[in-house]
Amino acid sequence: MSTTNKLTFINEKRGIEKEIVTNEDKPILILAEQENINLPYLCRTGDCNSCICKLISGSIIHTTQTTLQDQDIKEGYFLACTGFATSDCVIKTHQEKEFARYKKGI
């Protein structure tokens, strides 16, 4: 039996603030697409960081991905193409530039 999760996508710079309720066990990228929330992506396999988001609250799990290290995940970063919500979540979208700054220590 599926659990219902509320996902709130936010990005002030891009004017995104949209909430969806889902009981589907699909990657966050696909759930967003189904609701016309346009997230960036390239590979859809967890091998790049184009779809990187930041978890503000809630919890997600990843399927196989090669981009993020454990510390990145602890900081809240996740890939929308391989991330699955396991609770209600608040998700900051379009975090590729912020992730690059984080990795550089800026």
Rank of each mutant, 00 (worst) to 15 (best):
D72A: 12
G76W: 01
Y77S: 05
A100V: 00
L29V: 02
S57C: 06
K92H: 03
G58Q: 06
E17D: 13
L68E: 00
D70E: 11
K18E: 05
S50L: 03
A100G: 00
K92R: 03
F99G: 01
G58C: 12
Y41D: 11
G46Y: 08
H62E: 01
T64I: 04
E96P: 02
C48Q: 04
I52A: 10
I91L: 08
G58M: 06
C51R: 08
N5G: 02
A100Q: 01
I73S: 02
L79E: 01
E19K: 07
G46A: 12
R14A: 15
R14N: 11
D47R: 08
D72V: 06
Q95C: 12
E35A: 13
E96W: 06
N5C: 13
T82N: 03
K13M: 13
N36H: 08
N36L: 07
K26H: 15
G76Q: 07
E24S: 04
N23R: 13
N49C: 14
I16E: 06
S59K: 06
E98F: 12
S57F: 12
Y41I: 05
Y102R: 09
F84E: 03
C48H: 10
E19A: 04
K103N: 14
P40T: 08
G15K: 07
G105H: 07
I30P: 15
I16P: 02
C51H: 01
E96M: 04
T66C: 13
E75V: 08
Y77A: 06
S57H: 13
E24P: 00
L39F: 05
V90P: 15
Q71L: 08
G58N: 14
T45D: 08
T22N: 11
I56D: 15
E33A: 15
V90F: 04
G46Q: 05
G83A: 09
P27H: 02
T66Y: 14
T67W: 11
Q95T: 09
D72N: 15
K74M: 07
K6I: 10
D88Y: 12
A32T: 10
K26Q: 11
E17W: 03
E75D: 15
N11R: 05
F9K: 06
N11I: 00
T4D: 04
D25P: 05
D47Y: 14
T63Q: 09
